[in-house]
Design a binder for these strands. Structure first.
Length: 678
DNA sequence: AGCACGCCGACT
DNA sequence: GTCGGCGTGCTC
């Protein structure tokens, strides 16, 4: 009987292949590299990826097991996809199996194939409905046309920064460039696929319906973590089989199989949610650029406030910069940004008289206002004046946040919840005071101030239930809300037509953060939230929309740049500072984290790690406890590694990981390459 | 990472 | 007498 040895990688931290025996059953075809197999592993049955075939193995006969099934009904994952996973595995120092397998739909990874077969059958019926002619194509402004031409006429690898403020028509550029590329390939009798990455699921329904309306008859699918398993299987398979011509997805979509990929678009490329923050900590943006390079295709990075990494590439000429200076929406003008000096105009309930007057004016005119405060809950701390007790979390190095409607103290880090104490736990004082303010407290203050106004709060707490975020946004769009108060959830994507005032309540904390990236993020966030107003331009009455920023430091240069809508100046300045301080993007970093029940265990591991290997050219800093040392009763510490050369850092990390994997420690540890929160 | 085996404390 | 705590060892 014919047999082969299959070399298979599995989703396990063991960084090697496992050999299995395959024996031909009936007229079964020979397994191929890139196919999935279900195998017995220990006492479990798991899915594996076939990465090699051999006649023989070193594994002794007693250990060698038979493959349970090969997923031969599925086309093998293409070599370009295997190469992508291989690159990510090397770059982020993870076993290939941990990169390649977890992203595959669960229905492909089980022994039973009923769900998979059903999905395949459904897709087989759908076969090729596409006349790719887009409809309702708006006339482009000259700059937009130039950008579309640059993307669609690009040959080979072409990274392009599409730089333009909210309302400058970036989405239209993506759509028309995608249409051109699909049409070019169709004319040549080839299949083409376009991948559009967006930061969050929240934004996807709106853009998705726009794309579907624009491309009737073209198979469009979306891929994000909110999909049910069945849907995810269908979307993933449609992409893998080349049926889906446009794939719209969040960061996880970058690891999907797209055999005919011809264009990648990354919308809001600066957005932090492109960085996966657990497990394989990859940057979807960086992988997208790598993938475009590998496939020799264009990749469009769109933003009003590009990441400094991207900005530097553009300044150095490595990325082509396509700028949209005009706002494309008719009559649109940029909102007026004004600073309110909180030292002169002292806030009441968090609101200065200037901001209150502006809100009042909008209420009188029947226009909408948005208050932006990036802090949920009622108050960040509960405090006893009498003895100084504060609401520390007993499991974390943090405060428990007061949530008034829920009548709880809640830790935002470990989710511990307690009833709000009636009296101080240490001295019995019944007069406990909330310190500071979150969205709930602002909502309460507004209700007292404007009893007739329709006020809606949108944050992670008010939108816990599935669909409630959509409902909330819909009711704002229908004009059922006068004042909207929200966290960063409201800053993205949604274009509120009746909104003429944006108030920013207290952005100052980010100005003096120890995280050097805080100001970059603040600028982007302010520009983004400012973009919620004035998008439809001159509203009735003729005055443009207004953005009011309350601050104790109204003359800080960052605010000056925001008010002038001057990202160029801000970014140039920031890049200069980064270069002088030898910080990214002029330096590459990796972070070794360790956690244990006792801090000393974590620190000792890091100390050993710091000295266990020669490291010429690599800077290894001292191990330090993390800012938030304890989370859920686990103590955490970290070690920062720096190097001006990326290849040198990569080479060191490879050797280092090999040594570390053999060290015995009670600490749990992990490595992050290109960390963003340090 | 799972998952089992294995050897010592408080409980239906 | 058992249920169950987490140390350590293995996974083709």
């Amino acid at each position: 009987m014919e047999q082969r040895i299959l070399q298979i990688v599995l989703d396990t931290p063991l960084d090697r292949t496992f050999d299995y025996r395959w024996r031909r059953q009936g007229d079964e075809a020979l397994p191929q590299i890139g196919q999935l197999a279900i195998v017995p592993f220990g006492r479990r049955e798991v899915a594996g990826l076939i990465i090699g075939l051999a006649e023989q193995t070193e594994v002794p006969d007693g250990k060698l097991k038979d493959v349970l099934a090969v997923r031969s009904q599925l086309a093998p994952l293409p070599p370009q996809w295997l190469a992508l996973c291989g690159f990510a595995a090397d770059y982020y120092q993870r076993p290939l199996g941990e990169v390649a397998l977890p992203g595959l739909p669960k229905n492909l990874r089980t022994l039973t194939t009923t769900a998979l077969d059903r999905a395949l059958k459904k897709l087989a019926k759908l076969d090729a409905g596409h006349d790719g002619n887009p409809v309702n194509t708006p006339q482009l402004k000259p700059e937009q046309q130039e950008a579309v031409d640059a993307i669609a006429d690009a040959r080979g690898f072409a990274p392009l920064l599409l730089y333009g403020v909210t309302g400058s028509g970036k989405t239209e550029v993506y759509l028309q460039a995608a249409a051109r590329i699909l049409a070019q390939h169709e004319a040549a009798g080839e299949v083409a696929q376009v991948l559009v990455l967006v930061p969050e699921i929240n934004l996807t329904p709106q853009l998705e319906s726009n794309i579907r309306a624009r491309f009737p008859g073209v198979h469009v699918v979306s891929l994000h973590s909110g999909l049910a398993e069945g849907e995810r299987t269908l979307s993933w398979l449609a992409a893998h089989q080349g049926q889906a011509r446009i794939v719209l997805g969040t960061r996880l979509a970058i690891l999907s199989s797209l055999p005919h990929l011809k264009l990648i678009v990354i919308d809001e490329e600066h957005d932090p949610s492109y960085k996966q923050q657990e497990g394989l900590r990859y940057s979807a943006r960086d992988l997208a650029v790598w993938r475009a390079h590998q496939l020799a295709i264009p990749v469009v990075l769109g933003s009003a406030t590009p990441s400094l990494e991207t900005w530097q590439h553009a300044q150095a000429g490595r990325y082509r910069k396509l700028q949209l200076r005009e706002r494309a929406v008719r009559d649109a003008v940029l909102p007026k940004v004004k600073m309110i000096d909180m030292e002169r105009d002292r806030p009441n309930d968090g609101l200065t008289s200037t901001l209150v007057a502006a809100l009042k004016l909008r209420l009188e005119r029947g226009e909408q206002s948005l208050l932006f405060l990036n802090r949920r809950g009622y108050a960040p701390v509960l405090n006893c004046d009498a003895c100084g007790w504060i609401s520390n979390c007993m499991r974390c190095t943090s405060f428990m946040v007061l949530h008034k409607p829920e009548r709880r103290l809640r830790c935002h880090h470990c989710s511990l919840e307690l009833y709000i104490p009636k009296a101080c736990p240490t001295c019995g004082n019944v007069d406990l005071q909330p310190l500071g303010r979150g969205t709930q407290r602002v909502e309460e203050g507004l209700q007292a101030m404007f009893p007739e106004a329709r006020i809606l709060r949108i944050d992670a707490d008010s939108t816990r239930l599935k669909g409630s975020a959509q409902n909330a946004f819909d009711s704002v769009h229908r004009g059922e809300v006068d004042i909207l108060i929200g966290t960063q959830m409201v800053a993205k994507g949604h274009d509120f037509k009746r909104l003429t005032l944006v108030g920013v309540m207290n952005p100052d904390t980010a100005l003096f953060s120890h995280d050097y990236r805080a100001s970059e993020r603040l600028f982007a966030q302010l520009m983004q939230v400012a973009g919620r107003a004035g998008r439809a331009g001159q509203k009735e009455g003729g005055s443009p929309s207004e953005v009011l920023i309350q601050s104790r430091y109204p003359h800080h240069p960052l605010y000056g740049a925001v008010a002038a809508h001057d990202y160029d100046g801000f970014a140039t300045q920031l890049l200069e500072e980064r270069q002088q301080a030898a910080l990214p993007p002029f330096l590459y970093q990796a972070l070794l984290r360790a956690e244990a029940a006792e801090l000393d265990v974590a620190l000792a591991f890091l100390q050993d790690a710091a000295t266990c290997l020669e490291h010429p050219g690599i800077t290894i800093n001292d191990p330090i406890p993390m800012t938030m040392t304890r989370v859920a009763n686990v103590e955490r510490a970290q070690l920062l590694i720096e190097c001006p050369s990326r290849p040198a850092l990569q080479a060191f990390l490879r050797d280092w990981m090999e040594v570390l994997r053999q060290t015995k420690t009670r600490a749990k540890w992990s490595l992050e390459v290109d960390p963003v929160d340090i």
